[in-house]
Write a protein that binds this DNA or RNA. Sequence first.
RNA 1: GCGUGGUUGGUGAAGUGGUUAACACGGCGGAUUGUGGUUCCGUUAUGCAAGGGUUCGAUCCCCUUACCGCGCCCCA
Length: 432
Amino acid sequence: MQKAKGTYDVFGEYGKKIRVVENILSDLMEVYDYEYFRTPIFEASEVFHRGVGDTTDIVTKETYDFKDRGDRDMTLRPEGTAGIVRSYIENKYYGNPNVPSKIWYYGPMFRYERPQSGRFREFYQFGVEVFGSNDPLTDAEVISIPVNFYKMLGLKQIKVHINSLGDTESRDNYRKALKDYFRPHLDSLCEDCHVRFEKNPLRILDCKVDKDLDVMKKAPKTIDFLNEESKSHFDKVKEYLDAMNIEYIEDPNLVRGLDYYTHTVFEVEASVEGFGAQNILCGGGRYNKLVGTLGGPDTPGVGFAMGMERLMTALDYEKINLIEEDGIDAYIIPMSENEKGYSIGICNALRLSGYRTDMDYMSRNIKSNFKQSERLNAKYVIIIGEEETKNNVLTIKDNETKDEYKVKVSELVDFLDSKFDAHECGCGHCHE
RNA sequence: GCGUGGUUGGUGAAGUGGUUAACACGGCGGAUUGUGGUUCCGUUAUGCAAGGGUUCGAUCCCCUUACCGCGCCCCA
């Protein structure tokens, strides 16, 4: 038995680290005043077909599809936005007087792909969606979230790329112009680009093979096809980013793979040498037609999604350590089988008092037990033998100073309280 | 879906067509019958991803499959 391809188990150092990151993330969303949504991991297939786009690779060849026992077509969510939009509509959040709705989500997504660095079949995404405002303020705010988050984590080598696709009118005009432009040059483009030309001509622009071609460099730019309104929207977004001191790179070749984007699109890239091919940490943009497409009232929206695995890799690359040095408060050693009952009683009492406590479950000899107490980085070691149980006086050893104390059982908690109170150094052992 | 490299104990790994698969770390036990270090001793893979083939004999050669890594596609 082994894990399914493209999945991974969380434990050990990674487990500690991801919990820290997740906590920072939820704290950040509180500061931003966003509301937590959790939608199902599977939905009716139609949600994604209509939401993500019938022609996208994600939906046509990467979904986990299955029929449930009622013969319904279901799909494991390949991304978060479609489900959130479905929920937003179904719960009539468009009627919520608190506009805009600022929403965040976090959880596993599923795509049937060939795994490689920074890419899994089950992967975790964090994302936000803001519904109900077309104000460029919201575009800028959404972009600021990952930027601030990365800043809080200490990530330095990141780059923000932005572009605008314009509204549907601008976007359609541009797509047409692009096809007209590339049609006579098709021969010089790579094989993949021929497919893109038919399916999604915008994506020709970020082809890695042809990017240095002259035809590529002279291709029409999205910016030149923006109508007045779209252009002023984009200018405002940039103005607001400047106001927040967020650096960005205008990238006319930035287009995104999902069909639903309009106006602002952005990506944040990990620009670290040797990071791997999958170096886009997060990406998103505005999608003013999506809520309508999924059967809700016309509602503007903007959001982004962030891949957690890539983020964790980036933290490793920049050698950022988020795990605080921690150890337990007390380790209890029963000297023999006879003292185990007495020991677990003491252990239980300490835990109830809020002390992080562990004990020997392995009937180790005394030497191995001290070794174990070191492994656990225990502040105090409590030794319980025949003498101790008889007299109700415990032998407590300070593992740092090697001082030894005899303490009555009834005064144990008071003793530790006084010790930890006196020990104010932010070492993790101190109690408020 | 395409291409390419890999898979040997708890860990890092060496190795060979032929009886006991190095070495190191770690673990456990002991020397020390109630104290963490050092040192020493003992112990720690019935097995070299799985299945098939070639062979007198395969962990090693060949094929298939699985999984991992990297790149393409795509995307977070």
